[in-house]
């Protein structure tokens, strides 16, 4: 077994009546990425805070790079890089000054810190803004500056708490590339995210956290396999045709079909892949049922998340809140399905 770069055992932390961490166990092998997925308040950030020495757990043990977090927090701090949920940069210092300060606090000499800051700014495409105060930076630039600060020394273990939250797709992709490069060079990474796509792309292993516990663990594929296989999704043109369509699909179904009247959508679990899809299309055609859309779907991490936690991810919830009541009903129906 390779040495675990991060390991945690039975972490418990309560805030008043709330058990933010209720026995979290984790281990991240050296050189790998663990994606910590969970809804708001699941305990992701609290876990990161404990592992980065910002918060003491009520009970449990943790080591980072082989060093006990509770016994030698100072030593741990010299081995980690942290980029928190909000870009923690000094708005009134320039990009250069921000990074130089962090370098000096990582115990570099002033000259070393200066050179490193310059190098990082170039790498993060901030060289042109190096002499401007961070207050004038865009959200994406601040995020990059914050991530650069976590990389002033090349720490063997990094913690990124929702690193791409609030970034536009272009900046998100760019940041992913940086993260991939770091990992390729041997950095161990613990990443929390609310974007399932991000975990799918970056993480070797995923731990789903809910109510302060790790409720599932595995690779993205393993987790997807856990909740079953593929399904055919049909959207009919006329909602009156829904019962007919269900009838037509039932011979191919290996489980209960789900019907969403609002969206005129039927989902049936199937096996057999594209061949089944072709059969289904022929069957519907033969019965003269008009279809608006049809497709074969494999489970996404979204589905995994939904089936494990019983609720949608934060981003979906936020959407549901802002949409019409109808959309909310659709969401709850979606919940009922799994």
């Amino acid at each position: 077994m390779s040495e675990a770069a991060i390991s945690a055992e039975g972490l418990v932390r309560t805030f008043g009546d709330v058990r933010a961490l209720d026995g979290v166990d984790l281990d991240v092998p050296e050189g790998t990425v663990l994606g910590l997925l969970g809804p708001n308040g699941a305990g992701k950030t609290t876990t990161v805070r404990v592992l980065t020495t910002l918060l003491r757990p009520d009970s449990g043990r943790a080591t980072v790079a082989g060093v006990d977090v509770l016994k030698h927090p100072d030593k741990v701090r010299s081995l980690i890089g942290l980029s928190g949920q909000y870009a923690a940069v000094d708005e009134y210092l320039t990009g250069q000054e921000n990074l130089q300060m962090v370098g000096e606090l990582y115990q570099m000499s002033a000259r070393e810190a200066k050179a490193r800051a310059k190098e990082l700014l170039e790498w993060f495409n901030l060289a042109d803004a190096a002499g401007r105060i961070a207050k004038t930076y865009s959200g994406g630039m601040r995020r990059r500056l914050d991530l650069a600060a976590a990389l002033v020394v090349r720490p063997p273990v990094m913690f990124l708490d929702e690193p791409t939250t609030g970034l536009d797709p272009r900046n998100r992709m760019a940041l992913w590339e940086v993260i991939e490069q770091l990992v390729a060079e041997g950095t161990t990474l613990l990443l929390t995210t609310q974007y399932l796509e991000e975990a799918d792309r970056l993480a070797h292993d995923i731990a789903v956290v809910d109510h302060g516990r790790v409720i599932a663990r595995g690779t993205a594929d393993q987790l997807k396999a856990q909740i079953g296989g593929e399904r055919v999704e049909v959207v009919v043109t006329d909602s009156a045709a829904l019962p007919l369509a269900v009838d037509a699909l039932s011979p191919y179904a290996i489980g209960e079909p789900t019907v969403e009247p609002h969206t005129r959508r039927i989902t049936v679990p199937v096996t057999g892949g594209a061949r089944v899809l072709a059969d289904v299309i022929r069957e519907l055609d033969a019965r003269e049922i008009l279809i608006h859309d049809i497709g074969l779907r494999r489970p996404t991490l979204d589905d995994v998340f939904l089936s494990l936690t019983g609720h949608v991810t934060e981003s979906d919830e936020a959407v549901a809140e802002t949409e019409s009541p109808e959309a909310e009903t659709a969401t709850s129906r979606k919940k009922a399905r799994v």
């Binding site: 030593k75 990582y106 190098e119 790498w123 020394v153 720490p155 760019a174 940086v178």
Partner: peptide, 30 residues
């Protein structure tokens, strides 16, 4: 991000103990 590779950077080092380390860090913050 640029295509060039970021150098590894300095190896992380231990905190300097004692009053001297404290004063140095304080001066950086000041």
């Amino acid at each position: 991000m640029t295509a060039t590779t970021l150098t590894t950077g300095a190896a992380p080092r231990q905190i300097r103990g004692g009053v001297v380390g404290m004063l140095r860090d304080s001066w950086v913050v000041a």
